[in-house]
Design a protein around this nucleic acid. Structure first.
Length: 890
RNA sequence: GGGGGAUUAGCUCAGUUGGUUCAGAGCACCUGCCUUACAAGCAGGGGGUCAUAGGUUCGAGCCCUAUAUCCCCCACCA
């Protein structure tokens, strides 16, 4: 059967994917083996595979596949995140296209649409993961709004509330007056270059004084909500005014003049009007100074009665701005209009200017609950890779701020708070409405007729995904979660007991705090145990110019296209080739090409070996040596590989594998054992070579699962369907015979010497050459390998220098290749002279060191010995070169 | 503004406690080869004052101090 000379992934990948799935090779159940569990960072349920996923999942797959081969019970849990904001935005958009507005729908109707949409399009990304060969346990696919998961999230909310970690508080949120909804920070867009705006300087009178001061504002329409004027306490211009009362223009309200560090002396006029209801900073100022909050703007952006000016009530905020300006101009209180650059936030959805708005939100108190999570990373119970993120992590955790977990959306986990009255504390928190009713009855009496309203808001997505490593193993179920202590009893949950903590979490540093830190917090809060031992943080995939890949730039290749062009294996290798942990990856399609070429190289090595016919003939010495050498080389490399893997240096492991396969195995080993054209190979060498090839496939497998599986089956594992390279045993480190390695190195060095002479002197490979060796007593190369690899017709040991020859030195032995016809003596001479000059210079440097008394006195003996050895070698080399030159000249 | 990180070959990066080939790898580049596994290949080769300036040391890519440039995260000036 003819095997094509080019590897065709299309003929291979689907076949093996199907094989793996049908045989459920990646399914894991607890058993007596050591577990190796990994939870996937759940992609958005609405997501489609992009380059970031490609990188992220390839790294995980490499770790998981290797662990499986190491004999561990590998369990990689897949799933998706409901991603409340992102998904809700998409659903809203979709509905809008169908002419349906969210505001016209009931919550229930909207959620019905959302779930419908999720069923239809959600999980596309999971299918795409199959394409890249992700060896996840598909039977365990989870979703952050699965019923069980939903229950876990609710349960945790109630628990944290009961423990006193959750509270309600006022907070500025971004309000979209048109859509009448709150916006997350991510949904607020800013003009990149800033916005040109006007700063209005307005004069405020001082009570009981002829004095006045001038503030600067870009929002004159909020003047009626002012409750203070603030100046910097060190600003001498205003020291005398601190503590006095200023008069708000137009309405005459008296407000205090306060001092606060926050005020910049150099900006505007140095006086700041404080409007706690309509500016986040002013709100904080107000908190610090106990200022009243006067909210003058309605949800739809019109002014309300609190503004005290009837003419303004019901009018839109920007219309009012102009009216205010007109009034102030007329009264002479507007001193100046000044252009300046600022940044104005606009709603991503409606493009209206975002209105900061105070509202009651839910928070988690972070300080105490995050203590253990800080320590765990600090004392390396959890290791971050690369370690530099430890600093970042510490800084954030030490300055952790309370976490606002409520979102004004419908798609998500609805906050389990039930209100029975209008009072601030007229609510209860409970897992279900029934439980809530019970509590209310206890509180208000059995006969209460209070109607319960559940909070309309849902939880921040991260307030569900922070439970991921616990919840995917059903860690909050009734059996193991103890409501009274608020702890999980691991022993009562076989799965959790076996798989938790997981091994490695692979993700991007961008979400180190949003997600990773919070998972750690949850782990310690509920299990008193870390959720994972190692965190591998990979960079962002960027284009060649270093720009983030984005839809709008159109600079992101589609991973599916790449896999179609270069094969999944080639693309995986391409992704990992230049991606050390923590560094951004400047993606270059050329890397995938390199990956594809590598596939092809492996494929052709297989074709070569596969085509060999064995015969009952003696094993050549060169083949015997090749096997002996390669086995040592392989053992040595396995050691290096294991080290790289253990340190999570995945790209280093890949490069080591790449060189082992391409250089050591293909370029050297196969050439060394290869029989002459159309000659058979001895059976010992063939058998050994196939064994070696199998080992090669094993170390390649984590990176290139498809091609290795394909060849694996060709090499004699076709018979049983269960057999798979996926389940092969990772090679053990064996003995490394350093003597053999040294012999090989010397042999290879001589071969390269002869090749160089051939190339530089245009001696065709077909033409046999003689090789003479002047042995310094150290010659130890494998001669039969030399003869085979160099095209040597005659190998001879001599005692005197050979004349009329090209020469080179290797390991203090001198080698001579006698001139054939057409020899360029001049060129040869020049080469020798150049080398002489260089070596003399080198000797000078060494001597300088050795003549330095301080060096000889201060450096350890080993270092000095080495320098003396260098000196001796150099002196010897100079003698040889000089002799050679004189021989050529004569 | 606060914090963190980086600067080594044309590009992307290694370089472990300062001292054995430590100045490296891959790609790119140059030269020669369609040699019967592979031109998606083979063989060989060139290339760096380790950002700059000082300092510590017998010895610095590595340690210290400044300077310059770049990147990331958080908070963002009314």
């Amino acid at each position: 059967m003819e095997i094509p000379s080019k590897y065709d992934p299309k003929l291979v990948e689907d076949k093996w994917n199907q094989h793996w799935l049908e045989n459920r090779l990646f399914h894991s159940v607890p058993d007596e083996r050591e577990s190796y569990s990994v939870v996937i960072p759940p992609p958005n349920v609405t997501g489609v595979l992009h380059m970031g996923h490609m990188l992220n999942n390839t790294i995980q797959d490499v770790c998981v596949r290797r662990a499986r081969m190491l004999g561990k019970n590998a369990c990689w849990v897949p799933g998706t995140d409901h991603a409340s904001i992102a998904t809700e935005a998409k659903v809203v958009q979709l509905l809008r296209k169908q002419g349906i507005r969210k505001s016209d729908l009931s919550r229930e109707a909207f959620l019905e649409h959302a779930f419908e949409w999720k069923e239809k399009y959600g999980g596309i990304i999971l299918d795409q993961l199959k394409k890249l060969g992700a060896s996840v346990d598909w039977d365990r696919t989870s979703f952050t709004m699965d019923p069980g998961y939903y229950k876990a999230v609710t349960r945790v909310f109630v628990d944290l509330y009961n423990k006193g970690y959750i509270y309600r508080g006022l907070r500025m949120i971004n309000w979209d007056c048109e859509a009448q909804t709150a916006l997350s920070n991510e949904e607020v867009l800013y003009n990149e270059d800033g916005d040109k705006s006007l700063l209005y300087h307005v004069r405020y009178a001082i009570k009981d004084s002829n004095d006045s001061l001038v503030i600067a504002t870009q929002r004159p329409e909020t003047i009626m909500g002012d409750t203070a004027i603030a100046v910097n306490p060190t600003d001498e211009r205003f020291l005398h005014l601190i503590g006095k009362m200023a008069i708000v223009p137009m309405i005459g309200r008296e407000i205090p003049i306060i001092a606060d560090e926050y005020v910049e002396k150099d900006f505007g006029t140095g006086c700041l009007k404080v409007t706690p209801a309509h500016d986040p900073n002013d709100y904080e100022l107000g908190q610090r100074h106990n200022l009243p909050v006067i909210d003058t703007i309605n949800l739809d952006g019109t002014l309300n009665a609190s503004c005290e000016i009837p003419e303004f009530v019901g009018k839109e905020r920007f219309e009012v701005r102009q009216l205010v300006i007109d009034r102030l101009k007329a009264s002479g209180e507007l001193v100046k209009e000044e252009e300046f650059m600022t940044r104005i936030g606009r709603s991503e959805r409606t493009n209206t200017v975002v209105e900061p708005k105070l509202s009651l939100q839910w928070f988690i108190r972070m300080k105490d609950i995050s203590k253990q999570a800080l320590d765990a990373v600090e004392n390396d119970e959890i290791t971050l890779h690369p370690a530099k993120f430890k600093n970042t992590y510490r800084h954030w955790m030490e300055n952790v701020r309370d976490w606002c977990i409520s979102r004004q959306l419908w798609w998500g986990h609805r906050i389990p708070a039930f209100y029975y009255g209008e009072g601030e504390n007229d609510f209860v928190v409970a897992e279900t409405r029934e439980e809530a009713e019970q509590i209310v009855k206890q509180r208000l009496g059995e006969n209460t007729t209070a109607e319960l309203r559940q909070d309309d808001d849902v939880l921040d997505t991260w307030a569900s995904s922070w439970l991921w490593p616990i919840a995917v193993f059903d860690g909050f179920n009734d059996n193991c979660f103890d409501k009274t202590t608020g702890k999980i009893n691991k022993k009562a949950n076989k799965e959790l007991d076996y798989y938790y903590p997981t091994q490695v979490l692979v993700t991007a540093p961008e979400i180190l705090f949003f997600w990773v830190a919070r998972m750690i917090i949850a782990g310690y809060e509920y299990l008193d145990e870390k959720p994972f031992s190692d965190v591998y943080l990979h960079g962002i995939v960027r284009d060649k110019q270093g720009r983030k890949m984005s839809k709008s730039l159109g600079n992101s290749p589609d991973p599916l296209d790449l896999m179609a062009t270069y094969g999944a294996d080639g693309t995986r290798v391409g992704m990992l080739l230049s991606s050390p942990a923590g560094n951004d990856l400047l993606f270059d399609e050329g890397l995938c090409e390199q990956g594809r070429n590598f596939s092809n190289k492996i494929w052709n090595a297989f074709r070569l070996v596969n085509g060999w016919e064995s015969a009952d003939i003696p094993q050549p010495e060169s083949a015997r040596f090749a096997i002996e050498w390669f086995e040592s080389k392989f053992s040595e490399t396995i050691g290096l590989l294991n080290q790289s893997y253990d340190k999570f240096r995945i790209s280093e492991a890949l490069m080591t594998t790449y060189k082992l396969v391409w250089d050591d195995f293909c370029a050297w080993y196969l050439e060394m054992v290869k029989p002459a054209y159309q000659q058979p190979i001895d059976s010992i060498t063939l058998t050994k070579t196939k064994q070696i090839f199998e080992n090669i496939l094993k170390v390649l497998h984590p990176f290139m699962p498809f091609i290795t599986e394909e060849i694996w089956h060709y090499l004699g594992h076709r018979e049983t369907a269960q057999q798979s390279c996926c389940l092969a045993e990772w090679p053990k480190t064996g003995a490394v015979n350093s003597e053999v390695l040294a012999v090989f190195n010397e042999t290879a060095d001589i071969i390269i010497g002869v090749r160089t002479i051939r190339l530089q002197n245009n001696i065709p490979n077909k033409e046999q050459v003689e090789l003479k060796i002047k042995d310094s007593g150290k010659f130890a190369a494998n001669t039969s390998t030399l003869i085979k690899m160099c095209g040597v017709s005659n190998l001879e040991t001599i005692t005197e220098k050979a004349e009329n020859s090209f020469t080179f030195i290797s390991n203090q032995n001198e080698f001579f290749v006698p001139f054939g016809e057409n020899v360029d003596v001049e060129a040869e001479l020049k080469k020798l002279e150049d080398e002489l000059v260089y070596t003399k210079g080198f000797l000078d440097i060494v001597l300088k060191k050795l003549n330095n008394e301080k060096f000889v006195a201060g450096a350890p003996a080993a270092v000095i010995d080495n320098e003396r050895k260098k000196q001796a070698d150099a002196e010897g080399k100079i003698r040889m070169l000089e002799e050679k030159i004189s021989a050529l000249i004569s």
